[in-house]
Design a protein around this nucleic acid. Structure first.
Lengths: 210, 210
DNA sequence: GCCTGTGAAGCTATTCACAGCT
DNA sequence: AGCTGTGAATAGCTTCACAGGC
C-alpha cells in the first residue's frame, strides 16, 4: 500500500510529466523532476520506488513510460466516477475547474437541494435533486464524492453517500465528519488552512524583527 | 514553535468551542472535544499541552477560557490582513465563504487582471487591478495571500506578493510554486487531492472483494 | 563523473499507559 | 472512579550517504 503523501506527489509528477511530453522531452533525471515539483531528488526516487518504477543511471526516467506507470498505479484499470454534492459557489467553482483540466477522473453527477438547479445542466454536468443521491450513486456506480454542502448538512450527506456505496470523500464543508473506518476521508477546511498560514506568517515576521 | 498540524487542529477546536459557548456549555472533557473534532482524546491533550493550557481533572477545560487561550496563540495581538489574487470562480467562492464565517481573519483586498472587475466591489471586498499588487499590499501591511490564479501566473504572482511583504501563501493554483524559505507555503491542489481520494477509495473496494 | 536504488539514520506525529489529583 | 499531563513507545515520513552501474 502506497503512503498517502506519496500518492499525492505521484499525481503531481504525472501532471508535470504530461506537460513535458508536449514539449518533446524524452528523458528526465530525478533532480529535474524534483525541481519542477519543488521537492528533493531523494524524495522523487523514494516515491518512484514505491511504485516499483526504475530508471537508468545514465538516462534517468522515460517521461512517457513513467507517466503511464503512475497512471496504472493510481487509476487502476479504469478511473473512478465522482459525484459532487452542494452546487453553491464553491461546488460550481470546483466542477468547472476540473472540467478544464485533463485528468482521468470525471465528475459524472452533481446534487443540490435547490429545485431550480435540479434537473438542469450546470457547468456541463447534470444536476440532480439531493433526494436522489442514493438512487443515482448506486445506479452509476460512483465511488468517490466531493462535499461542498453547508456545515449542518455535511454529516447527513456523508452518511447517505457512504450508504450508497461511496468509498472516498473529499470534504470541503468546514466541519469534521465521521465515516466508517473503511471509507477514506480527506478534509479541506479553508478556514483552518488560512489560520495556519497566518500563524506561520506571523512567526516569520517576529523572527525577522529580532 | 507549535507544529503545523497542531495549529490546524487548534483552529478547529476554537471553532467548535465557540459553537458550544452559544449553547451554554461551560466545561468540556478532552474526550468530548475529541469526539466533536473526530480525533483521539490523547491528541487533544497533546495539542493543548503545546499551547501550555491546562485543565482540571474533575471539570475538564473551561470552554470560553480555552477558546481565548487558543486565540491568543494563533492570532497574536492582532489578526493578520489577507489578500486574494485571482477573482475567478474559485476566488469569488472563497471570498464569499470567508465572509459568511466568523473568523479573526479578514480578506481586505482582492486582485484581478480583468479590467472589468478591477475597481468594483466583488462579494463585499474591493477588487484592485493586478498591476497594483505591490502598492496595495505594502500600503495595507498585508502579510498573507491566497492564490487562485491560473497555473501560468502563479509563480510570478507569488514572487510579487513576497516582494511586497507577504510571509504566508495559501496556493490553490494547481502548480507547485517556489518561495524563499522564510515564507510559509501551503499548497491545496484540488486535482491531486481528488486523485488521492480516488486511489484509496479503489483500494478500499479491492480489499472488500476478496 | 554523475546518475540510480536503497539501507540506515534522523525527524515528526501519534498513541500508549500510567502517575497524580480530586 | 474518572479525569489530566506526560514520559516512553510506536508509527510514519524524509533525508543522508554510499554502493553499484555506465
Amino acid at each position: 500500500m502506497i503512503p498517502d503523501k506519496t500518492v499525492e506527489r505521484l499525481s503531481l509528477y504525472r501532471w508535470l510529466l504530461e506537460g513535458r511530453v508536449e514539449k518533446g522531452v524524452i528523458n528526465l533525471f530525478s533532480h529535474q523532476l524534483a525541481s519542477m515539483a519543488c521537492v528533493t531528488p531523494a524524495q522523487v526516487r523514494r516515491d518512484l520506488m514505491a511504485i516499483g518504477y526504475t530508471g537508468s543511471p545514465n538516462r534517468g526516467y522515460s517521461v512517457t513510460d513513467l507517466a503511464r506507470s503512475i497512471s496504472r498505479v493510481i487509476d487502476g484499470t479504469e478511473p473512478a466516477s465522482v459525484a459532487l454534492v452542494g452546487m453553491g459557489n464553491l461546488g460550481r467553482a470546483i466542477v468547472s475547474f476540473l472540467r478544464g483540466r485533463r485528468s482521468a477522473l470525471r465528475i459524472v453527477a452533481t446534487f443540490d437541494n435547490d429545485h431550480k438547479k435540479a434537473g438542469r445542466m450546470i457547468s456541463g454536468t447534470k444536476c440532480y435533486p439531493q433526494s436522489s443521491i442514493e438512487e443515482v450513486i448506486t445506479e452509476m456506480g460512483i465511488t468517490v464524492a466531493i462535499l461542498t454542502v453547508p456545515s449542518e448538512a455535511a454529516q447527513n450527506v456523508a452518511e447517505r453517500v457512504v450508504e450508497a456505496g461511496v468509498r472516498g470523500i473529499l470534504n470541503y464543508a468546514p466541519v469534521p465528519i465521521r465515516v466508517p473506518e473503511w471509507v477514506y476521508l480527506e478534509n479541506r477546511d479553508v478556514t483552518a488552512a488560512l489560520e495556519k498560514v497566518a500563524y506561520f506568517a506571523r512567526k516569520s515576521l517576529e523572527g525577522s524583527n529580532r
